[in-house]
């Protein structure tokens, strides 16, 4: 997968920068807007962001690298988040994690070879009465077992 920024994406990003200028504390919503739109925050745009927000490039980099949610490279078509927190551990999430990693043949923070699924750890989805939980894109699943993981994964692999 290439990280080179397409001209169309650059136009979108510049529009987001313009839309957020003057907003108090703009950097946080601006980064969300960019990542929501094109899937990641390309490092090439740090100079434009730093100029528009009156920050140094180091500050922009420092901001983005601080937050687990932001990423500077494209991810797979779908994102599967697996909860690693205590409540899910109490319901056997460790076995589930191992099963998912083996099924997808990837470790956390990596994308399947076909580019379809990126696997991420998450520390609580707020679904703790029905652990263990995972989230595929924005769909949340509770009391997940291995069979259900198969269904969730198969559903996105074949689309």
């Amino acid at each position: 997968m290439s990280d080179t920024l397409a001209a169309a994406d650059l136009i979108k990003i510049e529009a987001h920068i313009d839309a957020h200028k003057g907003l108090p504390g703009a950097l946080l919503p601006l980064m969300h807007a960019i990542q929501d739109d094109i899937g990641y925050i390309p490092e090439e745009i740090y100079p434009q962001v730093s100029k528009a927000m009156a920050l140094s490039i180091a500050e922009v980099h420092g901001f983005i690298s601080f937050y687990h949610h932001f990423r500077t490279h494209p991810v797979g078509k779908h994102v599967l988040q697996v909860c690693r927190a205590e409540s899910c551990q109490a319901m056997g999430s460790e076995k589930l994690e191992a099963y998912i990693k083996a099924k997808l043949s990837v470790d956390y923070h990596n994308t399947t070879a076909d580019g379809k699924i990126t696997l991420l750890p998450v520390y609580c989805l707020g679904n703790c009465a029905c652990s263990p939980s995972v989230m595929m894109n924005e769909e949340i699943y509770g009391r997940v077992d291995m069979k259900q993981i198969d269904d969730i994964v198969n559903e996105v692999i074949h689309d």
Binding site: A85, E86, S87, C88, Y123, C124, G126, C128
Partner: peptide, 11 residues
């Protein structure tokens, strides 16, 4: 920013 595992009352 309800981050504690085992909590969901804010949500």
């Amino acid at each position: 920013d309800e981050g504690d595992s085992g909590t969901f009352s804010d949500r």
